[in-house]
Amino acid sequence: MLDATLSAPPAALPARDADGKLDLGALFTESEVPEFLADLEADLIGLKPVKRRIREIAAHLVIGRAREQLGLTAGAPTLHMTFTGNPGTGKTTVALKMAQILHRLGYVRRGHLVSVTRDDLVGQYIGHTAPKTKEILKKAMGGVLFIDEAYYLYRPENERDYGQEAIEILLQVMENQRDDLVVILAGYKDRMDRFFESNPGFRSRIAHHIDFPDYEDEELVAIARSMADAADYRFSPEAERALVEYVTARRGQPNFANARSIRNAFDRMRLRQSLRLFDTAGLIDREALETITEGDVRASRVFSGGIDAPRSAASV
């Protein structure tokens, strides 16, 4: 039923009719959310649960605006979030989008994303952590603070670790300055869960827990295709078939990082393509320059026993 609410109406109407009824559709259109959701749909492949959750949040924010206009208490919702998922499932990308949507909906004033890790928040010696954390928080004000691998903030094995101090400052700001910034914590699911167990204060201050699923094989192929498109390359039909096999094989091998593995593979394919063209020399046309052939894909070590296997002469 959410999707029904969210499908944009044909035309923007005045936001309020004679009986004082609000036109949700118009409100929705004015908020630029439809374009945003369309962008999201086009830019992000797969990630169904994530998109659904973002639609929910977007709808909630629009409804909140509507309630405000009719004089109902809207109360700024808590927008802090966690993104959990395996490497390369698009957490950072979505965080960037999130900053934009919150900005368009008017819940953050500037809409920039400050991406940090433990090193940016936690100091080296006593008295170093608080100023460091506060400095980052000040930079993130009016936008979104994205803490990657947030569980490193808390190191239970060292009771004098300064991470705890950073956590306390973060919690305080998350609670007291909800209007000024939105905090997104990201990391792998199991470690994130353990982190929350030892820091119950965090869990209760975060309203949205979004889990990023691994990509399906065909989604990864689609991602490769869109990366190629963006870089003005294209796969020959045979290369595309090889790519499907590549994805299946790569998934079974160690250090598989979803879309990130695909990005790296694509970068290597480009290198191989360049070298192939360079070695053949002679005349080349536009098509040769933009086509990645089956050979470029198949030369990968993934097909000859994985990245740990000794390099063969074929894999350059």
Partner: peptide, 11 residues
């Protein structure tokens, strides 16, 4: 490198 006055105002 601040983007928003809220950071300055807290100081």
């Amino acid at each position: 490198d601040l983007k928003d006055a809220a950071g300055v105002f807290s100081e």
